[in-house]
């Protein structure tokens, strides 16, 4: 069995739980029916990535379509000359801060939703779901006003706040699903042993939430890393640009330097594609845990 079958750390007994994922032997199909369409789709997925990498690493003036010999001159131009080194650091700061803020706030709220029934719970839940329909692009003007009042325009904090707020609802709902899957008896056993509620949570629940935390955290990081419009609108000083803004300015030059564009693209892609390659299993599993089913 390949890695695709998620092994959840907890398997609480319960009648309502769906069976763990397992490929369907009953609907086995011919090999070529899998490999041919898959190969075609892989071509569609990978040729664009390949194109970017070739243009990034080949020496200036070369028209070869093979990424050899490798030259780093485009990367030097982009990293030092165009300031991508600074943009990279900015994006990293915003991404990590959003990750931490989103995860902590979502954990607290998710725990409340999973473990308590309280007045206003349904209202809170519905409000969270409704926010999914608020368009980020449409929030540019009002959020700009709010940040101007708070004197956060031109500060990376404005991006952290905006990212966190937009990430929160989905993260919170996802995490509450994961927390609900941890049997409450385990926590109660810890309380009996003299743990406080907080200590019980930290010692018993938190370690079991790893897949959920990985999914939610990387989701927050990737979305924050990729956000363009907020960064374009709220930050106008060049030393505070993030990667997507830097990339957009490279694109907007009168005569685009395609080598630099491709190298900037590689710089933008590597962190998120790496993170994604590691977490995509958890992501499918996390969504499978029932959170998207409303």
């Amino acid at each position: 069995m390949s890695t695709a079958t998620p092994t959840r750390p907890t398997a609480p007994p319960g009648p309502a739980r769906p069976r763990p994922a397992r490929p369907n032997r009953a609907v086995r199909v011919g090999r070529w029916q899998i490999y041919v369409p898959l190969a075609l789709y892989l071509l569609f997925t990978l040729v664009p990535f390949y194109w970017m990498v070739v243009f990034a690493v080949r020496p200036r003036g070369s028209t070869s379509l093979l990424p050899w010999p490798i030259s780093t001159e485009n990367f030097e131009t982009v990293w030092n000359g165009l300031g991508f080194g600074v943009f990279f650091a900015n994006s990293l700061k915003v991404g990590l801060a959003s990750l931490v803020a989103t995860t902590v706030v979502a954990l607290a709220g998710g725990y409340a939703l999973a473990r308590y029934s309280f007045r206003g719970r349904t209202l809170f839940l519905v409000a969270m779901l409704c926010t999914q329909f608020i368009p980020g692009a449409m929030m540019l003007i009002p959020l700009f006003e709010v940040f101007r009042t708070l004197d956060l325009v031109n500060s990376l904090w404005s991006l952290v706040v905006a990212e966190t707020v937009f990430q929160l609802p989905l993260s919170l709902i996802l995490l509450s699903g994961f927390i609900r899957n941890v049997p409450v008896e385990l926590e109660e056993a810890a309380w009996v042993d003299g743990c406080s509620r907080l200590r019980g949570f930290l010692v018993v629940v938190l370690p079991m939430l790893r897949p959920g935390l990985v999914a939610v955290g990387s989701f927050a990081f990737i979305n924050s890393w990729n956000n363009f419009l907020f960064a374009l609108m709220f930050v106008s000083e060049q030393d505070k640009y993030t990667i997507p803004v830097g990339l957009a300015f490279t694109l907007g030059e009168f005569s685009v330097d395609f080598g630099a564009l491709a190298a900037g693209g590689v710089v933008a892609a590597v962190p998120v594609v790496l993170v994604f390659a590691i977490i995509q299993r958890y992501l499918v599993q996390g969504l499978s845990a029932g959170a998207v089913k409303g």
Binding site: F228, A262, V272
Partner: peptide, 10 residues
């Protein structure tokens, strides 16, 4: 996992 801007670049 790729941003809209990067998609444009590519």
């Amino acid at each position: 996992a790729v941003s809209g801007v990067l998609t444009t670049g590519i």
